[in-house]
């Protein structure tokens, strides 16, 4: 089982990185929005609250291109049958989930330094900031994995994915934004509890997805 997951993951990385379009577009999108905000703001500095709202909105929308792609690609290139015949349901789901975790992390590694650099963000509590980013990323990528599978069956219409994942991700975004504001202003108290909330949320979401996945993946 574990080796099967790694086999799938390795395949996904190979395929994605040999044809980098999806990842490149996500990263380019992230970079451009960050720049655009900074440019149009013209050096005006925002309050921590606005800064964290924008940071998460940028991350949310740039991730939208990539998170569903891992499943949409299988349908577009019509390889999903090949995958289905050759690996078990569980390993498909878990490898895609891991891929999305890593993908979101890569995205954050690109966005956050750019964002901090261009928008003169002053992070007062780096530890909390980091924890919120990582755990929020886990929460977002775990809830979107199964939604990506659903969308891929609907012909992978890009904006559909945003529409169906937005109401589900709202609690995550809300909490992420408040906690990031805390991290920027150094009011660390509630923030650490929120990381735990994210992990619990991801746990619930992953187990539900795991149960539902077979109804979506198998025709």
């Amino acid at each position: 089982m574990l080796s099967e997951i790694f086999r799938n993951l390795r395949k996904d990385f190979r395929v994605e990185f040999r044809n980098r379009a999806a990842i490149n577009i996500s990263i380019a999108f992230a970079g451009i929005t960050t720049l655009a905000i900074s440019l149009t703001a013209g050096g005006v500095s925002f309050s921590p609250r606005v800064q964290s709202i924008m940071l998460w909105i940028i991350m949310f929308f740039s991730a939208m291109n990539g998170l569903a792609h891992i499943f949409i690609r299988e349908e577009e290139e019509r390889t999903s049958l090949f995958l289905r015949l050759n690996s078990s349901l569980e390993s498909v789901f878990l490898s895609k989930l891991l891929f999305n975790f890593i993908f979101f992390l890569i995205l954050q590694v690109v966005i956050c330094p750019l964002y901090i650099f261009f928008l003169q963000v002053d992070v007062k509590s780096p530890l909390l900031f980091l924890l919120i980013l990582v755990s929020g990323g886990i929460a977002i990528s775990s809830s979107t994995t199964i939604l990506g599978a659903m969308v891929s069956k609907a012909g992978g219409k890009g904006s559909l994915f945003t529409v169906i994942s937005f109401p589900i991700l709202l609690p995550v975004l809300w909490i992420a934004i408040t906690s990031t504001t805390d991290a920027l202003e150094k009011r660390a108290s509630a923030g650490f509890g929120n990381t735990l909330f994210f992990l619990a949320f991801s746990g619930v979401i992953i187990s539900i997805s795991f149960l539902l996945f077979k109804y979506i993946w198998v025709e």
């Binding site: 395949k11 040999r18 019509r78 049958l81 090949f82 015949l85 050759n86 078990s88 349901l89």
Partner: peptide, 20 residues
Amino acid sequence: NDINRYIGFTSPLLNPYEEL
């Protein structure tokens, strides 16, 4: 759930990964 292990299948509908 185990049946996939016992079958081999080719079809025009079955596409291997182009990138690999």
